[in-house]
Computed example of a mutant assay.
Amino acid sequence: MIVRQVGPLRQKVRAWKRAGQSVGVVPTMGALHAGHLSLVDAARAACDRVIVTIFVNPRQFNSPEDLANYPRTETRDAALLAPFEVDAIFVPDPDQVYPAGFATNVSVSGVSEGLCGAHRPGHFDGVATVVSKLFGMTGAERAYFGEKDFQQLQVVRRLVADLDLDVEIIGCPTVREADGLALSSRNARLDTAARAAAPALYRALQDASEALVAGAPVAPTLAAARAAILAGGYAEVEYLELRAEDGLAPLEQADRPARLLAAAWIGGVRLIDNIRL
């Protein structure tokens, strides 16, 4: 069932909670793929009621062109969700999220800095603001996010901890194609040649991760990985960094749980990925 207004959604949630039922939410921007559906599956397994939100959030786009080009596939998305029997698909009208006079911005420092935060100014403010809204609108006790957007996941966790929000954040593993490419709504924008070359990013991360775990020095290992990504067909490596898994502090050696994170451009499309050491 598609719901577009906050009032009717809250009526549903109140009724569920009166019946003692737990509520999970999977926030998305639509253009659903198997990665999103794995989050829905996880929510369905753990919660009595599941809400999937679909909202293309203008505040987390840095480019009007990128916002305009983002795929909007509501009918297809609803069909993909049908087998999961979700209890509500919340597709809020824009004025439900950002009504006239809206003047609040939620900003999370620290974990939002560097990586995507350095290259997409204001992006994580947009994420934190809309996630705060969606948590308030849905009243969910659990929220499900993919680890592919690992910095985003850390921003949301910090937001919830700092503001004492009563929602548990569940991070779910990245879902990949058979050739290793992380699933992303942006993959649909790759032409045939770019799609064939795109797995070079994951291969380079794998090779670098194995080297670092074996004790290789960080700087030359990352330099070799960057070169491999470019040689594999990418036009630009925006960043490739080793960060602590908890807190995302930059690391000069792999001496604690860490993530190798990268963003790179191929065929005019920006792809991100990460791998845990």
Rank of each mutant, 00 (worst) to 15 (best):
residue 164 D to V: 08
residue 86 V to R: 03
residue 126 G to N: 06
residue 233 G to S: 10
residue 262 A to L: 13
residue 208 A to E: 08
residue 212 L to N: 13
residue 159 L to V: 10
residue 80 L to W: 05
residue 70 Y to S: 13
residue 163 L to T: 09
residue 48 D to V: 12
residue 199 P to D: 05
residue 138 T to L: 01
residue 146 G to M: 09
residue 27 P to W: 14
residue 74 E to V: 00
residue 206 Q to F: 05
residue 142 R to N: 00
residue 44 R to S: 07
residue 170 I to E: 06
residue 258 A to K: 03
residue 19 A to T: 06
residue 230 L to S: 12
residue 53 T to S: 15
residue 133 K to A: 07
residue 181 L to C: 06
residue 172 C to L: 00
residue 121 P to K: 02
residue 151 Q to E: 14
residue 137 M to L: 09
residue 140 A to K: 02
residue 229 I to L: 07
residue 195 R to G: 03
residue 8 P to D: 05
residue 6 V to I: 14
residue 17 K to F: 04
residue 172 C to F: 02
residue 209 S to D: 11
residue 34 A to D: 11
residue 174 T to P: 03
residue 251 L to T: 10
residue 147 E to Y: 10
residue 207 D to K: 12
residue 54 I to L: 12
residue 89 I to H: 12
residue 71 P to N: 01
residue 130 V to R: 03
residue 100 A to L: 14
residue 246 D to M: 04
residue 92 P to V: 12
residue 241 E to G: 04
residue 216 A to K: 04
residue 121 P to V: 00
residue 248 L to I: 02
residue 61 F to E: 00
residue 11 Q to S: 13
residue 107 S to L: 12
residue 53 T to L: 11
residue 236 E to M: 01
residue 242 L to V: 01
residue 49 R to M: 15
residue 174 T to I: 12
residue 199 P to A: 11
residue 220 P to T: 01
residue 173 P to C: 11
residue 265 W to I: 14
residue 27 P to I: 05
residue 46 A to M: 10
residue 212 L to Q: 14
residue 241 E to F: 01
residue 216 A to E: 07
residue 74 E to A: 06
residue 144 Y to L: 12
residue 156 V to E: 14
residue 249 A to D: 03
residue 115 L to R: 00
residue 167 V to W: 02
residue 100 A to W: 11
residue 112 S to M: 02
residue 251 L to D: 01
residue 150 F to D: 12
residue 76 R to A: 04
residue 269 V to I: 08
residue 36 H to Y: 09
residue 180 G to D: 03
residue 245 E to P: 02
residue 108 V to K: 14
residue 97 V to E: 13
residue 122 G to Y: 09
residue 276 R to G: 08
residue 196 A to W: 07
residue 264 A to T: 10
residue 192 T to M: 01
residue 200 A to D: 12
residue 62 N to R: 01
residue 180 G to E: 08
residue 260 L to F: 04
residue 57 N to F: 03
residue 111 V to Y: 07
residue 142 R to G: 05
residue 217 P to R: 06
residue 214 A to L: 02
residue 49 R to T: 06
residue 135 F to C: 00
residue 2 I to F: 03
residue 200 A to S: 15
residue 13 V to Q: 09
residue 185 S to H: 07
residue 152 Q to Y: 13
residue 15 A to I: 09
residue 202 Y to H: 11
residue 62 N to H: 05
residue 199 P to W: 14
residue 60 Q to A: 11
residue 41 D to K: 15
residue 110 G to L: 08
residue 250 P to R: 03
residue 47 C to W: 05
residue 162 D to W: 08
residue 111 V to C: 03
residue 11 Q to C: 13
residue 225 A to T: 08
residue 180 G to H: 09
residue 168 E to W: 01
residue 108 V to T: 04
residue 206 Q to W: 06
residue 188 A to Y: 03
residue 12 K to R: 15
residue 161 A to C: 07
residue 271 L to K: 13
